[in-house]
C-alpha cells in the first residue's frame, strides 16, 4: 500500500530536529519506530509535508538508572526496555507491559517506548482506510464536527491504547518534552488531554525526549493486567496497572490506573486514600471493582472491537486482578 509523498529529515542532533519542528510543526510528525505512524500515513489519516526521523539522534536512545530515578530515552527500542537489568529489577510490571505490545519477535525491534506512550488513540471508525471513511463522512479527527461512534459527542473519544500508559502513570513517571525554546517536564498523568483529536499536552513544535520513572521509595508491589482477544498482535481491550508500596504488612501508597478505555488513562484517585495505611484485605477488592466501573462507564463508548458493556466489565476484572496481585490477595476469597 502506497504512502503519500513527504520529505524525509534525519537530523543527527536533537537541536537540529527541534529546529525543523519549530519550522514545520504539525506538518512534520516524528518518525520513531514507524509502526504506528506509517499505518496512519497509508490510510491517509495524515499527509504530512515531511517526517522527522529519530534514527540518527543517539542522545534519544538508551536507559540510565540514576540515584532517584530511571530514565528511558524516548527513542529506545521496546526490546531494550524489556531486557534492561535496571528495568527488570525495579519495574517488573513495565517489562510485562512491554512484552504485551504487538508481537515480541517483531514490533519490539522497531517500536520505541516513546512511540508506545504517544500511540495515536484508536477508534474503529477512524483507523480505517481512506476508502472506508469516504462513505461515512468526517469525524472530529478528520476535519468534521461530529463523532461517528458517538453522535453528538463534543470531542473525539478514541482510545488511548498504549500498553505502557497505565504502568507509567501508576509509577508516577514524568515526561520530558523539548522544544527549540527549552525543556519542560510533566507527569505522565497530565500528558493526556482526554481529547482524541489532540490527545497529548504537547505543542506541534515539541518532541518527547525522555520518560523518567522515580525509583520506589519502599518495597514496590505491582501488577499489570491487560485483556485482549489474542495473546499477541492485539491492542488491549482494557488494561490496568497498580503500583503500591507495601511495607511491614501495610499499604504505604497505592495507585491504580485503568487505560484503553477512553482518550486518556483514568487514575482511581479516591482509592488511594482509602487503601493507604491499611493492611491488604480482600474486602478492598469490592470498592476497587465499583470504583473501576464508575471511572470507565463515562469514558467507554462503542468504538472498539468489543462492546461498551463488555469493556466496562473487563475494566472491573482488570482492576480487581491488578489490585489483587499487587496486594498479594490472589488466593484469598474476596
Amino acid at each position: 500500500m502506497r504512502l503519500p509523498p513527504f520529505a524525509y529529515h534525519a537530523p543527527d542532533t536533537l537541536d537540529k530536529a527541534l529546529k525543523i519542528k519549530a519550522e514545520l510543526g504539525a506538518s512534520a510528525p516524528i518518525l520513531a519506530g514507524g509502526t504506528d505512524l506509517l499505518v496512519h500515513l497509508k490510510h491517509r489519516l495524515a499527509s504530512p509535508a515531511a517526517v522527522i526521523s529519530l534514527k540518527n539522534i543517539r542522545t534519544l536512545k538508551g536507559i540510565e538508572v540514576g540515584a532517584d530515578s530511571l530514565v528511558l530515552r524516548a527513542g529506545t527500542p521496546l526490546r531494550e526496555v524489556a531486557a534492561h537489568e535496571g528495568v527488570i529489577r525495579n519495574f517488573p510490571l513495565l517489562v510485562k507491559a512491554v512484552h504485551s505490545i504487538g508481537a515480541v519477535g517483531i514490533q519490539h525491534f522497531r517500536g520505541t517506548i516513546g512511540g508506545n506512550l504517544c500511540l495515536t488513540p484508536r477508534c474503529l471508525f477512524y483507523n480505517q482506510s481512506l476508502f472506508w471513511r469516504t462513505g461515512k463522512g468526517q469525524c472530529h479527527r478528520t476535519g468534521g464536527k461530529d463523532c461517528l461512534a458517538l453522535k453528538g459527542s463534543e470531542s473525539c473519544q478514541a482510545i488511548c491504547s498504549g500498553d505502557t500508559v497505565p504502568v507509567l502513570a501508576a509509577l508516577s513517571a514524568q515526561v520530558t518534552i523539548a522544544s527549540a525554546g527549552g525543556m519542560r517536564t510533566a507527569p505522565v498523568a497530565e500528558f493526556f488531554t482526554g481529547k482524541g483529536e489532540s490527545p497529548f499536552n504537547m505543542t506541534p513544535e515539541e518532541i518527547l525526549t525522555e520518560i523518567r520513572i522515580p525509583l520506589p521509595w519502599g518495597p514496590l508491589s505491582s501488577s499489570y493486567q491487560r485483556l485482549s482477544f489474542r495473546s499477541a498482535v492485539d491492542f488491549p481491550l482494557i488494561n490496568a496497572a497498580v503500583a503500591a508500596i507495601l511495607d511491614k504488612g501495610k499499604v504505604e501508597s497505592f495507585r491504580l490506573v485503568i487505560s484503553s478505555a477512553g482518550p486518556a488513562p483514568v487514575i482511581l484517585k479516591e482509592l488511594e486514600s482509602a487503601i493507604k495505611g491499611q493492611k491488604p484485605d480482600p474486602a478492598m477488592l469490592q470498592p476497587v471493582r465499583e470504583a473501576a466501573i464508575k471511572a470507565v462507564e463515562g469514558a467507554i463508548i462503542e468504538n472498539a472491537s468489543a462492546s461498551k458493556e463488555y469493556r466496562v466489565k473487563l475494566a472491573a476484572v482488570a482492576a480487581v486482578r491488578a489490585a489483587s496481585e499487587a496486594l498479594g490477595l490472589e488466593n484469598q476469597p474476596s
Binding site: L124, W132, K136, R230, S231, D234, S305
Partner: peptide, 23 residues
C-alpha cells in the same frame, strides 16, 4: 465480521481475529 450498517468494521487482519501460533 462486525458491521455498522453496510460497512464492515473489521476488514483487516488486525481486527478480524484469525488464530496465532501462541493460542
Amino acid at each position: 465480521h462486525r458491521w455498522h450498517q453496510g460497512h464492515v468494521l473489521n476488514p483487516s487482519l488486525l481486527e478480524y481475529k484469525i488464530p496465532i501460533i501462541k493460542d
